[in-house]
Every structure is written in structure tokens, then in C-alpha cells.
Amino acid sequence: MKRIYRQLTALALGTMLASQAWAFGGFNLDLNKIISAGKNLSEASKEISEPEEISIGEGMASVLLGAAPLLKNDAIQTYINQVGRYLSLQTERPDLPWHFGVLDSVSVNAFATPGGHIFVTSGLLKKMHSEAELAGVLSHEIAHVLRKHHLAAMKKAGGMGFLTDVASIAVDQKGGGGYAGKELSKNLISGMKEILVRGLDKDDEYEADRMGIVIATRSGYDPYGLPAVLQTLDGLSGTSDVSLLFSTHPAPASRLDTLSGLMQSKFDHYQGQSVSDRFRRLVPNGGNN
């Protein structure tokens, strides 16, 4: 009992310290919530369930869509869902509720949220030359979902107690009919924003690159789609369109160097398609570097 009390104190203290370290406040969960999360320590230490993960991700996707709406082009939105859903079938989590969207933004970026929401900005889409490049980027984002990198980042920032708390809030609000715009708590929203603004662990980005090229290759695409996009991004360094992307990811040059060591020869014997014709039909301004 004493040990549990000590753990509980440590958990509460850790959460408070974490909340102070976070630049934008809003993370001062009230003590009752912390205690309720810490009450059952065995529960607090177990993994977030899949429904909880999906629920957190839906809330985070909703926040992202508050920053930029979807591009008003139904054909492109359907297309990215077809490509993305196909890629997801070549992974270990083919039955998640995967959703893909193109955000209407000049910023060059891509995002994932837990449980299967993936976004690419129209700014990034216009820099691409082929479906294989799109597949490379989507596969990188899919890998973040597969490996639950965002949940790891939330855990790191706020502690496991916080994550359990967030999940319970999210699931409470989800109710029976799915997340349907029910009021998300301010703490929850600011926590999601922090992850979007701060980005993920750098090693997780490198892992998503490694997995991304494999998922795209498995799906029959040219393995070099993602590296080609990274090469384009490297050429954009110093421009404002990539400022958030560059502040939340390792430099494209470093990512290319890492992939270079990894891919040299190993991926040459895979026959992959670039599928540039239908990509260009749907994204006529593609490849504007």
C-alpha cells in the first residue's frame, strides 16, 4: 500500500512537473483526475486500448482540420483514400479505420494522428511527381500510426497517467456514436496541439522513413518515392513553406543520408511502378519544385 502511495505521489509530481515544462500551459490537470488515473496503477501502466487510440486520433484530426480545412476537390480526396487504404492493407494493422485527406494549405507538410487519420497538404502534393511519391509519404505517416509514435510522445510529455486520463476523457466524450464534435476538454486539445507543434521523437521519424519505403515497396510502388520527396524537400530548405516541417523533423539531408546507407543496392531488385500518369491527371501542377 505504501509503495502504491509512493508511486502515486511520484506520478502526480511527474505530471505537475511535465505540465510546467510545457510551454503553453493548459496541461494543469486537476488533482482529482490525476488521482483517478493513478488509483489503479496496474491499469495506468497498461497500453492504451485501440478504441481509446482511435478516439484520441479523431480528436487530434479534428483540431488539425481546424487549422486547415480539406481541399475542395472530391476527386483528389477519393483518390488519396484509395491509395492510402491500399497501402494500409500491406501493413500489420489493415483493419484500423483508416482515413486520408488533403489539407488546403500552401505549407508543405504531412501529418498522422493515432488510430489511422493521415493528412497531406495540397502544398506538398503539388511538389510531387508521381503516385509513388505520394505513396512514399503516406507510408511514412502510416508507419507513425502502426508504431503508435504519437502515443509515445504524449506519454513522454505527460506521463502514462496523463495518457490514460486523456484516453478516458476522449472515450467518455466519444460516447456511443463516435466522436461527433462533442466538446473536447481544453486540456485534451492543448495536449494534442503540443504534439502537432513539437513533433515526434527524431528516432521515430527515421523509423517511419525505414518502414515507409518498405510499405510502399510491398505495395508495388517504386521504393524511391519517399527519397525523391525528401530530395525535393531538401531543395526547399530556407523557404517559409517548410518551416513547421523542418522544425518538427530531422533535416531532409540527414534523412537521405540515412536512407542512402540503408537502401544502397538492397532495394534495387524490386520492380516498382511510379504511376505518374493518373497522378498528373489529378494533380496537374505536380512537380512544381
Binding site: 483540431v63 488539425l64 481546424g66 487549422a67 500552401v106 505549407s107 464534435g181 507543434v197 513547421l244
Partner: peptide, 21 residues
């Protein structure tokens, strides 16, 4: 539209757009 740290910090959830997605 830009997506920057500021626009993300100031964003409000958009459930209608999520439904559309």
C-alpha cells in the same frame, strides 16, 4: 493558408470537416 505553430495553437476543433473527411 499556412499551417504554422501559431495557426495550430489557435485552431479550434472542426468536427464538421472531420465528418466530411
Amino acid at each position: 493558408l499556412d499551417i504554422t505553430k501559431d495557426t495550430l495553437q489557435n485552431a479550434s476543433p472542426n468536427p464538421g470537416e472531420l465528418k466530411r473527411m
